[in-house]
Amino acid sequence: MPASKTPIYTALAANLLIAAAKLTAALLTGSSAMASEGIHSLVDTSNEVLLLYGMRRSRLPPDEHRPFGYGKELYFWAFVVSLLFFALGGGFSIYEGIHHLLEPEPVRNPEWNYAILGFALIFDGISLITALREFNRQRGGAPFWQAVKQSKDPSTFVVLFEDAADVTGILLAFTGIALGQYFHNPYADGIASILIGLLLTFVAIFLVRESRSLLMGETASPQEVAQIIDLVQNAPGILQVSHHQSMYLSPEEVMLQLQVRFRPGLNSEDLVATTQQLRLNIQQLFPHFQHIAIEAV
């Protein structure tokens, strides 16, 4: 099921507005946690731009340089996004928190922080709900974590986890600022910034692992392959499927190679006709199997 771009556009608009508001509040109040959140939102904004670029590139038609198309562009840019999330989001937040612990200073005008965080929570919450609805539409009745593991569309689950980290980070920043104000303890703000950085690092490591797996090439689902093998082996003139290989080139594009034993006595014309009919039957059952190679054994 093709992914909608709506969650990405929603997240892009929300993060752009929120980043400006958070960084302004950080300058006015000197809050380390707010500065971390502002950088976090800027990183998220760049991530959405890169994902949209990857989606556009992945739809380019095949050419002499890329005979199987540019589908893996999406997987590459999703991997880059995951690394940026780790290096810029998590790394800077941890650095900012440690710097604030070494040189603590009380937060000035905390009311600005509360107002901006409330504003950010509303917009990030809307973005999270939009991404979650799109992910639920795609996963159907599959359990959540199973659907994440099996998903071949990083543009959906990357945005979902980014938005979830955004909302959690806002709550951590709010808690750190409030505790620092209540107990007159400037260290609470720095600790909140470090916790935000650790949260982003954990999410980034998970996204890097999932994106890397897609970039390296994941096979089609065993259920789909089993149905294809059953379809082929029940076709006239076929004895057995001896070997099969498959790989996702993009969320809606799979390459499949079959080694097939044909019944003795088939001439070359019969082999060509049978092979062509098998390709049509497979693509009618699973349209995303767009590159099918059938080799006679």
Rank of each mutant, 00 (worst) to 15 (best):
L280R: 15
K72M: 07
I8Q: 05
V208W: 07
N234P: 15
N185T: 02
F262K: 00
A235R: 10
A192Q: 07
S31N: 04
L12V: 02
T175A: 15
T156L: 13
P106Y: 08
S32F: 02
I282E: 07
V225G: 03
R279I: 10
L198M: 07
A147I: 13
A142Q: 14
L256Y: 10
R212M: 14
A20P: 10
F79W: 11
L239S: 06
L50F: 05
L88M: 07
H184Y: 01
T156N: 07
N185G: 01
L231S: 01
L285V: 11
S268N: 06
S242V: 07
A296P: 13
L179K: 04
A78W: 10
V254R: 01
I194E: 11
Q138D: 14
V81N: 01
D63M: 11
T6C: 00
E210P: 15
A142I: 14
T45G: 01
V159P: 00
K5W: 02
A147Y: 09
L51N: 05
T201P: 02
A78L: 11
S31K: 06
I294Y: 04
Q277L: 09
V225E: 12
H244R: 12
D189A: 05
Q138S: 15
S221R: 12
S242N: 15
L258G: 06
K22H: 01
G69N: 03
A273S: 08
R108D: 08
G141Q: 15
L215I: 11
Y9T: 02
L74F: 09
I282C: 08
L83G: 14
P106Q: 11
I238C: 03
L88H: 01
A293W: 14
K5T: 09
R57M: 03
L207M: 14
K149Q: 12
I194D: 12
Q276N: 14
S246H: 10
S93Y: 00
V159K: 00
H288G: 05
F123R: 12
L117A: 04
I228K: 11
F123T: 10
P104S: 13
L285S: 09
A115N: 01
A235V: 02
R209V: 11
G237H: 09
V208D: 06
L215W: 10
L271C: 03
N136T: 14
V241E: 02
A178G: 04
G97T: 12
V49R: 03
G125N: 09
L179Q: 02
E73A: 09
K152L: 04
H243S: 13
Q227L: 11
I94P: 10
V107A: 08
Q290L: 10
A115L: 09
R209G: 12
G176H: 00
P251F: 09
R137A: 12
L207Q: 08
A11P: 07
V208L: 09
M55K: 05
G217K: 10
L52H: 02
M1F: 12
G118H: 04
V208A: 07
A173W: 01
A13G: 06
E162N: 06
P251S: 08
N113T: 06
E73R: 01
Q277M: 13
L88E: 00
F92M: 14
A226S: 13
G90N: 02
K152G: 01
A142W: 07
A19D: 12
R139N: 07
F119G: 10
H100E: 02
F86Q: 03
A131F: 11
P264K: 04
E48H: 00
T45W: 00
D124E: 14
Y187R: 11
Q284V: 08
S41R: 02
